[in-house]
Design a protein around this nucleic acid. Structure first.
Length: 575
DNA sequence: GCCGTTTTCGGCCCGACTGTTTTCAGTCG
C-alpha cells in the first residue's frame, strides 16, 4: 500500500468518526482531502521534494491537513486520529459497513446500548433489543440482520464482462414491455470500469408502476431491497444488486449524466453549475425554476461550457479541465479495431483449431488475425516444442494462402520472457514468425529492479513486437508483479515495441492509468483478446473500453491500422 | 477544515426512499 492510500484511508475513517459525533462540515472536508490524496502523485515524494508548500497544492488540503500528512510521513501516525479511535471500540466503525447503518445509527447503538461491533449487533437484533430505542423498530432489526448477512456474503464487486452480460439480460426483458420507450445502462457499467459494484439502469416509460413491477418480479431476483414509484432496487441471484429508475424524457439526459457518475466527476460538474448561477440535478440543469438543459447529456455539458465528455473519461482526473479548454482527446472508437493480434489454438491451450479461429476472425469483420500459441517452456499450457512449432508454421502458411483476399493470417507465438530476459525460442526460429508477443509467465515475486531489468532486456532484444499483459495481474486474484512501468514504457517507445492492452476480462492489463502514461509518453499500444476459443474474440470491446479510459486515440493503437499499413509497420519492427 | 469571478467569512452537491414518525432524520447513491 502506498502512503497515499494509507493517508486517504485514515482521512476517510476520521470523516466517519467525526460524523458519528455530530461534528458539522469537517467530515466533508476530510473526504474531499482523502480523494485529493488518493488522486495525487506519490505523496511522500511530493513532500520530500516540494515540502509543505507542495502539499498545499493538492486539492482539498489546507494548513491543518497538510500538517497531519507531514506528521504521518515523519512519525507514522496522526495523534488526532489516535485520539478519535481511542474514544470508541474498533468494532463500532465496522458496523457502518452494514447497509442501512450509517454514522448516526452506529453511534447511538454504541452510546445507548453499548453495542461494540457487528457480532454484538447481530445478537441484539435477534433479541429484539433495538426496538427500545426511539426511531428504531422491528423492521430496522430485520433490515440490519439482512445487511449483516449480505456483508458476510462478501459483497465483492464483479468483473465488467459479467455485469455486462447480466445487464443485457435485464435490458432485453424490460425492452419487451410496450410501455418502455428507452432504456440505457448507467453507473460504473456505462463508464466501463474494470469491476462493477452494482448495475444501474435508466428507463423512459409512460407507465413507471408497470416497469417497477416487471423489474422487481424478474426470476433472478432473490430480494427486493426497495420499491418506490420511480426507483427500485433488487438483489440478484449472482449476488449483485441492480437498480432501475424511470424518468421523463425531458430529464433523461440529465439523469443519464447524473447516474453515470463518477461521483467525483458529478461533484465537480455541480460546482461549475453553481459558479455559473445554475443548479444541476438528475432532473436537469436549472437557472431558478427554468430548466435550461436535461433532455440529452450533450446539452447539459454544452450549457456548462464543456465539450461532451465520453462516459469512460468521467473520473475527475483532468477531463473536465480538458473539456473546458476544448482539449479532450478524440478517444478510440469501439469500431476502430481492424484485427486481433493475440489468440490461442489447439496447438497450445486453446479450444479451437487455427482454421476455426481464422473463420471466427472473419466473422468479426477483421482484416487480419495473428495466431500466437504458447512457446515451449510454458508446459502448463502445452507450449509448443520446436518440432510442433514448425508444423504449426506450415499449417498457418497453408491457411494464409487459403484465406488470401479474405483475411491476412499472421503466424505468431506468445513467447515466454525467461529469467534473464531472453526468449525461449532461438532467434533463427523467431525470424520465421510474423508476429511475436513477449510475456512474463514466471517469477512473479521478483524484486522491482530485477523484473524491470528482465522485461526491458526482452524489449531491447529486437525480437518481440509487443509486450503481453505488461503487469501480469489477474483482477481480484493475483496482484501485478512489481515493475517500474515508466522505464518499461520508455524502453518500449525507444525500441518500437507495442504495449499490450490485454482485453481478457480477468486481465485488462495495462490498466487505465498506465495506458494514459504510455499515451503521454508516445508509446504504441496493441489491444489483444488473448482468446482461447472463438467466442472470446468478442471481449475486444472491454479492451477498447480500457484504452478509452486511458485516453488512447486510434493513432496510439497499432491494430487500428488497415492491413496494408500494418504490414509496412511490421516490416520496420524487430531487429 | 477548506476555499474564493458570491465571499478572508460564511458557505459547503442533490434528491429518493425508508421507517418511524405525524413532519422528519438517516442513509444511500
Amino acid at each position: 500500500m502506498t502512503k497515499n492510500s494509507e493517508i486517504a484511508g485514515i482521512f476517510y475513517e476520521m470523516a466517519d468518526l467525526l460524523e458519528m459525533q455530530g461534528v458539522q462540515w469537517k467530515p466533508r472536508a476530510y473526504r474531499t482531502a482523502a480523494r485529493g490524496v488518493d488522486a495525487a502523485e506519490d505523496i511522500e515524494k511530493t513532500y520530500k521534494e516540494g515540502g509543505r508548500k507542495a502539499l498545499l497544492e493538492i486539492p482539498g488540503i489546507g494548513e491543518s491537513l497538510a500538517d497531519k500528512i507531514i506528521e504521518y510521513i515523519e512519525t507514522g501516525k496522526i495523534k488526532e486520529y489516535e485520539k478519535l479511535t481511542a474514544k470508541l471500540p474498533e468494532g463500532v466503525h465496522a458496523m457502518m459497513h452494514i447497509m442501512g447503518v450509517g454514522p448516526k445509527k452506529a453511534w447511538r447503538l454504541y452510546k445507548e446500548l453499548n453495542i461494540r461491533g457487528v457480532d454484538e449487533l447481530e445478537k441484539a437484533c435477534k433479541q429484539g433489543r433495538l426496538r427500545s430505542l426511539k426511531g428504531f423498530g422491528q423492521k430496522t432489526e430485520d433490515d440490519i440482520l439482512k445487511g449483516i448477512a449480505t456483508l458476510r456474503a462478501g459483497q465483492e464487486r464483479i468483473l465488467l464482462w459479467k455485469a455486462w452480460v447480466i445487464s443485457q439480460d435485464i435490458i432485453q426483458r424490460l425492452k419487451k414491455l410496450k410501455e418502455v420507450r428507452a432504456i440505457e445502462p448507467a453507473g460504473s457499467l456505462r463508464r466501463m470500469q474494470e469491476t462493477i459494484g452494482d448495475i444501474d439502469i435508466l428507463v423512459i416509460s409512460t407507465n413507471p408502476a408497470k416497469v417497477m413491477d416487471s423489474f422487481t418480479t424478474m426470476p433472478d431476483v432473490v430480494r427486493v431491497l426497495a420499491k418506490g414509484r420511480t426507483k427500485s432496487s433488487v438483489q440478484l441471484k449472482d449476488g449483485i444488486n441492480a437498480d432501475v429508475r424511470v424518468l421523463e424524457p425531458r430529464s433523461f439526459g440529465a439523469a443519464l449524466q447524473y447516474f453515470t457518475g463518477s461521483k467525483d466527476h458529478n461533484i465537480a460538474l455541480r460546482q461549475i453549475a453553481i459558479k455559473k448561477g445554475m443548479k444541476l440535478s438528475e432532473y436537469g440543469l436549472f437557472r431558478g425554476n427554468r430548466q435550461v438543459a436535461g433532455k440529452t447529456e450533450e446539452e447539459v455539458y454544452k450549457k456548462l461550457g464543456l465539450n461532451y465528455i465520453p462516459p469512460e473519461l468521467r473520473q475527475n482526473t483532468g477531463e473536465i479541465e480538458a473539456a473546458a479548454a476544448g482539449k479532450l482527446p478524440k478517444i478510440i472508437g469501439y469500431d476502430s479495431i481492424k484485427g486481433d493480434l493475440h489468440t490461442h489454438t489447439k496447438y497450445s491451450d486453446g479450444a479451437n483449431t487455427p482454421e476455426e479461429m481464422v473463420q471466427a476472425a472473419i466473422r468479426m469483420g477483421y482484416e487480419y488475425v495473428a495466431l500466437t500459441d504458447h512457446s515451449k517452456s510454458e508446459h502448463i499450457a502445452h507450449g509448443m516444442e520446436t518440432k510442433r512449432l514448425l508444423k504449426y508454421i506450415s499449417e498457418i502458411s497453408r491457411l494464409r494462402k487459403k484465406y488470401a483476399g479474405k483475411i491476412a493470417v499472421l503466424c505468431g507465438s506468445e513467447v515466454n520472457i525467461m529469467n534473464d530476459g531472453s526468449l525461449d525460442y532461438p532467434k533463427k526460429i523467431l525470424d520465421q514468425l510474423d508476429w511475436v508477443v513477449g510475456s512474463v509467465h514466471s517469477g512473479f515475486k521478483w524484486s522491482q529492479e530485477a523484473m524491470t531489468k528482465r522485461i526491458v532486456a526482452a524489449i531491447q532484444s529486437g525480437q518481440i513486437n509487443v509486450l503481453g499483459h505488461p503487469t501480469g495481474r489477474l483482477i481480484g486474484t493475483r496482484a501485478p508483479y512489481s515493475v517500474d512501468i515508466e522505464r518499461v514504457i520508455r524502453a518500449a517507445k525507444e525500441n518500437n515495441v507495442a504495449l499490450e492492452i490485454n482485453a481478457f476480462p480477468t486481465r485488462l492489463d495495462l490498466k487505465d492509468s498506465h495506458t494514459r502514461m504510455a499515451v503521454d509518453a508516445g508509446a504504441k499500444l496493441c489491444i489483444g483478446t488473448d482468446s482461447h476459443n472463438t467466442s472470446h474474440l468478442a471481449v475486444m470491446k472491454f479492451g477498447i473500453a480500457q484504452a478509452r479510459r486511458g485516453w488512447a486515440e486510434a493513432k496510439d493503437v497499432i491494430n487500428t491500422m488497415p492491413w496494408k499499413k500494418l504490414e509496412k509497420y511490421i516490416s520496420k519492427c524487430r531487429g
